[in-house]
Amino acid sequence: MVHYQARLDATFAALSDVTRRGVLEQLGRSDCSITDLALRFDMTLTGMKKHVTILEEAGLVTTEKLGRVRTCKLGHRRLEEEAAWIDQHRQLWNARFDALDQLVEHMKSKEKANATSNRK
C-alpha cells in the first residue's frame, strides 16, 4: 500500500506542473534532447533538467546520454494504477452526486406539494 501511494504521489506531483505536462505532450510526438526542450519552453537548461528529473523519477520519462547530448523519451510505465484510482473516486463522487440529485428532487416535490396545499 505504501509503495502504491508513493507511486501515485510521484505521478500526480509530476503531472501537477504545466511545463511537465507540456514536456510529456512533446515527447509523445517525438524524442527530444533536454536542450531542445529547454528552447521550446523558453527555459534554462538547468530548469528543464529539474523538470525532466521529476518526470524520470515518476517513471514517465527515460533519458539516455550519448556523448554530450541527453535524449528524453516517454517512459515505459503506463498510468493504469493512476487511472484506476481516478476511476474509483469518480464512481464514488458520481454516487454522491446522484444521491444529492435525488434529495434535491425530493425536496422540490415536497415544497411544491406544500405550496399547493397552502393555496387551498
Rank of each mutant, 00 (worst) to 15 (best):
W85M: 08
A38H: 02
F41M: 03
R90A: 08
V69E: 06
K65V: 15
K108R: 13
G59Q: 10
L100R: 09
Q26N: 03
E105Q: 12
K108L: 13
E57A: 15
G47F: 05
A113W: 07
R40E: 09
R96P: 00
N114W: 13
R7A: 04
G28L: 06
T53A: 11
K65G: 05
H3R: 11
V52Y: 01
V104I: 15
R21V: 05
L24K: 01
H106I: 04
L27I: 04
G59A: 14
A14R: 01
E56M: 09
M43R: 14
V2Q: 12
L60S: 01
L37F: 03
D87M: 14
T44Q: 12
Q5S: 07
K110W: 08
A10R: 15
T71A: 00
F97E: 11
W85G: 01
Q5K: 06
L45M: 10
L45V: 05
F97W: 11
K112E: 12
L60C: 03
Q102N: 15
W93D: 03
T44H: 08
T62G: 02
I86C: 10
D87Q: 12
Q88V: 08
F41R: 02
N118R: 15
R119Y: 10
L24I: 03
L24R: 02
N114G: 12
D98E: 10
V61M: 02
E56H: 08
F12G: 02
H106W: 08
T53Q: 13
H3N: 12
R7Y: 05
L66I: 05
F12P: 01
V18I: 07
K65L: 14
N94F: 05
R78Y: 09
D87K: 11
C32K: 13
E82H: 08
R78I: 07
G22D: 01
K73A: 15
D36F: 01
R96Y: 10
N118A: 15
R90C: 05
H51N: 12
A99I: 02
Q91D: 14
E82C: 05
K50E: 08
C32V: 03
G47H: 08
L24H: 02
A83Y: 11
D101V: 05
L37H: 01
Q26G: 00
L24G: 00
W85K: 08
T63R: 11
L24S: 01
I54Y: 00
T11H: 04
K50C: 05
L39V: 07
A58M: 10
